[in-house]
Design a protein around this nucleic acid. Structure first.
Lengths: 227, 227
DNA sequence: ACTATCTAACTAACCAGTTAATTAATAACA
DNA sequence: TGTTATTAATTAACTGGTTAGTTAGATAGT
C-alpha cells in the first residue's frame, strides 16, 4: 500500500489517481454483482461519481477495465497469501496458515470470489482472453508453492499421499464456495452468512475439514471437530 | 360414457413438444455458456433451429425460459441423487453413494454446474426471483436428507462430529468445483479435464477426500490415498 | 500557453419482445 | 367422401428501449 508518492502532477485539475481508483473500485462492485455481461458502464460511472467518458480515458474499453479488475483481485490475493507462504513454518502449520490467509482474504473482500468464479468459468466470449494470463501470472505460481508444502509434508510422513493436482483445487473449493453461494446460504439459514460470527464458524469448519482430510494422525493425537 | 378424448392433439403441424425440447436444450447451452445476462435469445433460437418468436410462444419471456432451465437442471439432479438416498445402506456407504451419484450427474452434464453456480451467486438482478423457489424445492430437501445420513453416522460412532451445515456445503463444493473451473484446469494441466480418464481420477480424489474428512478410523483401519 | 483531466451530448449497434400473417392437422358437417 | 371451419404451430419482419463507445469541447494546474 503506497500512498506517499510525490507525483509529477502535470497540468490538470482534480486528483487523477483518485478518479482512476474510484472507477476501479466501482468496477469491482459492478462486475462482481452483475457479471461481465451484466455489468453496465453507466452504473460504474455513476457509483464512481465520474463521467462515463472518463472510463474510456483511463481504460481502452469495458474489457480492459475488466482486466484491470481481475489484476487487482488476483494481485491482492497472491500478495496476501504469498506472504504466509514465505514464512518458515513446518508443513502442518504452513498449510493451515495458507488456508487461513486465503480464507481471510476472501472473507474481507466478499465480492472477489464472485469475480474469480465468473472468470474461472470463462463466462462469455468464446476465448477467455484474460484467463490465460491470470493462470500464468497468479494461479500457476500459487499452485506450485502450495504443492511444494504438500510434498514436504508427505516426505516427512505428516500428510496423507494425496495428489496435489486434486487436493489443491479441493482446498480452494472449500475455502471459496461458502462465499460464492452466500445468497443460497442466506436463504437456507435465514441468517446473514457474512456476519462475523458465521464467518468465524465457517473458517473453523474449513480448517478442520482440511486438517482431517490431509493430516495423518499416527495414534491418539486427536482433535475432533466441535459441534 | 367416457369419451376417451385424452390428448386432444388439436390441429397443428410439426412436432410441438419436440420444438419445445429443442428450445430448452439450446437454452441450457446458452445460459450455461454465457450466463443469464450474457445469453442471447437469438442465439438460442438459432441453435434450436426455430424462429425466435417461438421462444415467446412457449415461454413468457427470457426469465421464464431461464426458470424452466433451472427446473430441468435441478429436477434432474434430485431425481438422480434422491434415488441413492432412498437406498437402505449403512452411513458410510450411503454418503459415498450420494457423493458419487452427485458427481456422476454433474460429470455427465458438465454444463449444469455452471448454471447452478451462476444461480447460487444470484448473478444479476437485485432479487434472485427463482432462487427462493429453488432452495425450497430442491436444496432444502436435499440438505435434510444428507444431514440425516450424517447424523446417523455420528450416532453410530462412525463419523466425526462435524456440523452438517458446514460439511454438506463443503462436500458439494468439492464435487462441483472441478467442473465449474474446468477452463482453468484445462490451462493448468494442458489436458482436457473432461476426458473420461481425468474425470475418473477426479471422482476417486473427491471420494477419498470426503472419506478422510468424515470417517473415523478407530485404529489401524487405514486406506491411504493412492498417488 | 500548454496539456492532463474531465464532461455533456450524441451515435450506432444491439437485443428482448411484438405483430400480423401463414401453414397444416384435425374436426364438423354435408 | 370430400369440403370447409377451426385452431395449434410457426415464421418474417418490425419496434423501441438500452448500452458500449465517441466527439468536441471545457476546465484548471504548471
Amino acid at each position: 500500500m503506497k500512498t506517499v508518492t510525490f507525483k509529477p502532477r502535470l497540468g490538470s485539475r482534480g486528483r487523477p489517481e483518485q478518479s482512476r481508483a474510484a472507477i476501479l473500485q466501482a468496477a469491482v462492485r459492478e462486475f462482481a454483482r452483475e457479471g461481465v455481461a451484466g455489468a453496465r458502464t453507466d452504473a460504474i460511472a455513476r457509483t464512481a461519481k465520474v463521467n462515463k467518458a472518463l472510463l474510456y480515458y483511463y481504460f481502452k474499453d469495458k474489457e480492459a477495465l475488466y482486466g484491470a479488475v481481475l489484476d487487482q483481485v488476483f494481485g491482492g490475493l497472491i500478495a496476501s497469501v504469498g506472504e504466509v507462504l514465505s514464512l518458515d513454518l513446518p508443513p502442518r502449520e504452513k498449510i493451515l496458515a495458507y488456508a487461513g490467509a486465503h480464507f481471510d482474504y476472501v472473507a474481507s473482500h466478499p465480492l472477489y470470489p464472485r469475480i474469480v468464479q465468473g472468470e474461472m468459468m470463462g463466462a462469455g466470449r468464446g476465448s477467455p482472453k484474460h484467463l490465460e494470463g491470470i493462470v500464468a501470472r497468479y494461479f500457476r505460481p500459487l499452485f506450485g508453492r502450495v504443492a511444494d508444502v504438500l510434498k514436504t509434508g508427505q516426505k516427512r510422513g505428516e500428510f496423507r499421499q494425496v495428489d496435489p493436482l486434486h487436493f489443491v483445487p479441493s482446498m480452494i473449493a472449500i475455502i471459496v464456495f461458502y462465499f460464492t453461494s452466500a445468497p443460497v446460504m442466506r436463504l437456507m439459514t435465514g441468517k446473514d452468512p457474512l456476519s462475523p460470527a458465521l464467518v468465524a464458524a465457517r473458517r473453523a469448519a474449513v480448517l478442520d475439514f482440511i486438517s482431517a482430510a490431509l493430516f495423518l494422525r499416527p495414534n491418539g493425537k486427536y482433535r475432533g471437530a466441535r459441534k
